[in-house]
């Protein structure tokens, strides 16, 4: 079954298109990576998938439905975590914002509290649940956003540069966390400019720069001719153990 499908999608913010005639298919259960140089339209592609922008032309389908009608199946983690240092909410209150159904104005029900606690444990933040969100480090904040997206039990998880604020020491733990989420049956689409990180993690990858230059198995990315076309020069990928091989 197709989890996400781009059918000849063209979109731009001003007159010039950022992506042009992009067609891509992500199958259910895929761990799909989107790579490309800066300004290639990777984040735009993810925003379109999440229904945050309307394509100029073409169609985007999520589990066979138009993406704007599939919001309840989508979890989206933005590239830049909100940076308001004095945001008046605790970690568990932020995670609860991703619950479906949304908590009533009176507060969370017991099952909702338990679910939030469970997800926080999964991302390793159970001890921070009563901490004010503004007091967290960049890496912790990224995990909070991931927990917020996961607590709604999305079938399709869209992650935009999730390792941007994470230090190298935690990156491997974060990768393991993403692998666990994938193994539990969630389809993941991940955008990153970090080819090494990507080649380690995903099983399929698309290399884009306004259009699709390569789409196939992650293992063959390093040898692909298309990657040179997208970046405009040779690209060296340091290969890691590939969990899907």
């Amino acid at each position: 079954m197709k989890a996400l499908e781009f059918l000849n999608v063209t979109f731009g913010y001003e007159k010039e298109p950022v992506i042009e005639n992009v067609s891509l298919t992500v199958e259910k259960g895929d761990f799909f990576g989107i790579v490309g140089p800066n300004g290639a339209g990777k984040s735009t592609l993810l925003k379109l998938a999440a229904g945050l922008a309307k394509p100029w032309s073409g169609k985007i389908m999520v589990f066979g439905k138009e993406n704007v009608k599939a919001g309840k199946k989508i979890g989206y983690v933005p590239q830049k975590p909100p940076s308001e240092k004095r945001f008046p909410a605790t970690v568990s209150e932020i995670v609860a914002m991703g619950l479906k159904p949304f908590p009533s104005w009176k507060g969370m029900e017991r099952w909702q509290k338990e679910k939030v606690d469970r997800i926080l444990m999964e991302v390793g933040l159970e001890e921070k649940k009563d901490e004010m969100v503004g007091n967290l480090s960049g890496g912790q904040l990224q995990r909070v956003l991931l927990a917020k997206a996961l607590v709604g039990e999305p079938e399709l998880l869209l992650l935009d540069e999730p390792t941007n604020d994470i230090d190298a020491a935690f990156q491997e733990k974060f990768c393991c966390l993403l692998e666990r989420i994938h193994e539990s049956g969630t389809t993941i689409v991940l955008v990153s400019h970090d080819l090494t990180f990507m080649s380690y993690l995903v099983n399929k990858v698309a290399c884009i720069n306004k259009r699709v230059y390569f789409c196939g198995k992650a293992a063959s990315l390093a040898d692909a001719e298309g990657i040179r076309g997208a970046y405009g020069h040779d690209v060296k990928i340091i290969k890691h153990r590939h969990p899907h091989e």
């Binding site: 229904g51 919001g71 979890g75 989206y76 308001e84 914002m97 479906k100 949304f102 908590p103 997206a149």
Partner: peptide
């Protein structure tokens, strides 16, 4: 405001994430 405060707070924190999740 009291009735909608949770939705307002979620949008204040992460408008795009809330929209993507179907709000």
């Amino acid at each position: 405001t009291a009735y909608l405060h949770r939705h307002f707070l979620a949008i204040c924190y992460d408008e795009e994430g809330s929209k993507a999740a179907g709000m």
